[in-house]
Design a protein around this nucleic acid. Structure first.
Lengths: 199, 199
DNA sequence: AAACTCAGAGTACAGTTGTACACCTTGATT
DNA sequence: AATCAAGGTGTACAACTGTACTCTGAGTTT
């Protein structure tokens, strides 16, 4: 059962979370947001904040969770598209770039503030993406574990780096960036195959 | 001529710059430093700050300049070592890693705070490194311009990414990271050669 | 219907911030 | 030797911060 009260509470909780995300921009990362600004943007009194989070740190952790969830969705969506056939690299990069446009605030959170918990969170996400890709590469390309890991990690780093660059850039530039990234991943793929066969 | 006054002024100016750098840590990036904290760390009164910089923004720009200068030194030192022979990739990565240990604060400034001017500064540095490497690759490996650019850019991104990761990590982990990075660059190099020959 | 719970607002306060002003001290200039 | 210039300090203040306290209105439980 979900009482009217619980619904209301969830609603203003979302208001706060969304307000926090919305405040992120090219110039503004999470750590220079104040509790008061967030509540103001959400149209609430500063004290209302405490009914939902104990402090900004806790809100930060929740935003990180939310970001993690979205990235999971991103991955499953890419997997789905790949199953329908086509270049794995192209599909992955395109899916990633679409997500960046759609959920810019999530990437801002993870890519713009690289200290404390946010840095750790990004590191975890990169690890997670790396492991998934690593497994795939071992299976699909018959790579040995070490080479697969090297390729997977380099690939993910290039992609996240492109993501950071794509955040505040016009469409043309973003398109070029996408093309470049695809070529770079293909380059790494070639190198990986060769390195694998010479072992 | 350098009067006693000018010397003194330069001395406390350095005091402020060094204090600012010193405050940077894994948890603390430039944008959450306050003017008062910096002057306090330098052992000065808050107002003394204004005799040297108009505000924290200006100090930030000066730190960025300083960082740029150090990276120039890093590059020329790498070039010097490379002339003495040996694997270009290994020498470059090792030189980079040594610099990170020695001038951690510079990398913190550029790699930890990725919004506003700092983001732009990092982007400039990556561009600059990319161009230099790109030129070298065209000449040394007879690559065509586009392939050289792709390789150079991917290489620099991997290296800077490793730098960010190396910042707060124990020696063993850093050693592993160095090894991994070298292998990844070699992988990219193989891929680049192949991509180049198939055009 | 009465009693209770609790999300939110209003007021209040102490700590920190950037910065303006008046001052002092000391090196530089005349 | 007298005057000036300028780097540094102390005081002061308004703006903003997080957060404690009290109160209220409306949903919930009895």
């Amino acid at each position: 059962m979900s009482s009217i009260r619980a619904q209301q509470k969830e609603k203003t909780r979302r208001l706060l979370i969304d307000a926090a995300f919305a405040q992120l921009s090219a110039e503004r990362s999470f750590s220079n947001l104040s509790l008061r600004e967030v509540t103001k943007a959400a149209g609430l009194s500063p004290n209302a904040f405490y009914r939902h989070f104990s402090d900004m740190n806790e809100l930060g952790l929740i935003l990180i969770d939310e970001a993690g969830l979205m990235l999971k969705k991103l991955r499953s969506q890419a997997r789905l598209r790949i199953k329908k056939g086509g270049s794995v690299v192209k599909i992955s990069v395109l899916t990633f770039m679409e997500f960046i446009e759609q959920y810019a605030h999530i990437f801002r959170l993870l890519l713009q503030e690289r200290s404390g918990v946010f840095r750790a969170a990004l590191s975890r996400e990169i690890d997670s993406f790396t492991k998934a890709l690593c497994g795939y590469l071992q299976q699909a390309n018959k790579l040995n574990a070490e080479v697969a890991y090297l390729q997977a990690n380099a690939t993910i780093i290039i992609v996240f780096s492109a993501a950071a660059e794509a955040l505040d850039v016009d469409q043309k530039r973003r398109h070029d960036l996408t093309k470049r990234t695809i070529l770079q991943l293909q380059m790494i793929d070639k190198g990986s195959l060769e390195m694998n066969s010479s072992r």
